[in-house]
């Protein structure tokens, strides 16, 4: 009875346990086999490099919970980064003002996705596939593919390279967004509605939930946070180019799914997503620290990310698989 009561919660709990175990295995392995993996310097490095993916994955979580997807976040990051550069260099704005304008642009990009999804009732996959090309194309058009914005003032560069109270500056942003999104998803009517929409959009509508408004909120929130991510990204690298954030959308989705969120919507958690981000970040960084893999870390991390995803998701359905095999072997002699 009890198992039935919290069935999907249990599955989730089990999935998160698996993730924690995988993460511990990763850390132990790299600690033993890697060179200077566990140093404070490297730890800060891992955090710095995972902030953008982390931010994207965090805001991708509520979207996937509604049964949607946003493929445009990577391109949007590129567009925001380039526009930030434009605002600062060509419009002569101080970095803080340019930053706020960039966040406004992010909200508009997310709003554009939301508009097409809720008003024209187009599937999110198609809409964001379109804006995936559109935003990147705009970024390239603005810079004509070659222009890069560099030589930002130190005050801005400290966002991506400095520390506050011993933690990388952008880690605090990630933490703040994580807490915000966690509360939103797990403690408010927004999160509740998002799940309802993910399980059954029609059912949610018949229950009088403001389906369109909830969807719009999720996509606009994504736009705002992507803009913030574009700032930390630009600051960390010191340059803003049109290819910023290339391929980040798939990494973010991978982290969310790795974290146990169902791609069909309804089921999932923000802490799961954070664990997924951590598992990916540690893996990518660790491979560059192990002598045997150092030279082909890039290629290997792709392969191992796939393996990690499959292992994490398959582990959850292992009991089911065993039951199925057992039943097969039983029914065969008959």
């Amino acid at each position: 009875m009890n198992a039935d009561k919290h069935r999907w919660k249990n599955i989730l709990a089990r999935h998160e346990t698996i993730l924690v175990i995988l993460l511990v295995i990763e850390i132990c392995y790299f600690q033993l086999a890697g060179i200077r993996f566990g140093t404070a310097d490297n730890e800060a490095n891992i955090v710095r490099h995972s902030v953008e993916i982390g931010l994207l994955a965090l805001v991708m979580t509520p979207i996937i919970l509604t049964g949607g997807i946003d493929l445009s976040v990577g391109s949007m990051l590129g567009l925001c980064a380039v526009l930030f550069g434009k605002f600062w260099r060509d419009a002569g704005m101080p970095p803080w003002l340019a930053g706020f304008c960039t966040i406004g642009i992010g909200a508009m990009c997310g709003g554009f996705n939301a508009l097409l999804i809720t008003r024209l009732r187009l599937p999110p996959l198609i809409v964001t596939l379109g804006t995936f090309s559109l935003f990147r194309g705009l970024a390239e058009a603005i810079t004509r593919g070659v222009d890069a914005f560099t030589e930002f003032p130190d005050s801005f560069l400290s966002l991506g390279n400095g520390t506050i109270w011993g933690l990388p500056t952008q880690a605090w942003i990630l933490l703040a967004v994580a807490i915000f999104v966690w509360l939103l998803v797990h403690r408010t009517t927004f999160g509740r509605s998002a799940r309802a929409i993910g399980f059954s959009p029609e059912g949610a509508r018949y229950a009088g939930l403001p389906v369109e408004r909830r969807l719009a909120t999720a996509y606009i929130l994504a736009g705002v946070v992507v803009a913030i991510a574009s700032l930390t990204y630009t600051s960390r690298l010191g340059t803003a180019k049109a290819d910023a954030g290339f391929g980040y959308e798939l990494l973010a989705i991978t982290a969310v799914v790795l974290g146990g969120t169902s791609i069909f919507g309804g089921v999932g958690s923000v802490h799961g997503t954070l664990l997924g981000v951590a598992a990916l970040a540690v893996l990518t960084n660790g491979l560059t620290r192990v002598p045997a893999t150092m030279n082909m870390a890039g290629e290997l991390s792709g392969v191992l990310t796939g393996v990690l995803l499959i292992v994490a998701l398959a582990a959850g359905s292992l009991p089911k698989l065993i039951r199925l095999l057992r039943r097969r072997s039983r029914s065969k002699p008959a």
Partner: peptide
């Protein structure tokens, strides 16, 4: 399909 959301708890 419309009356209840089967996957969600009664309270929700």
């Amino acid at each position: 399909r419309h009356g209840v959301i089967l996957e969600m708890p009664i309270a929700h």
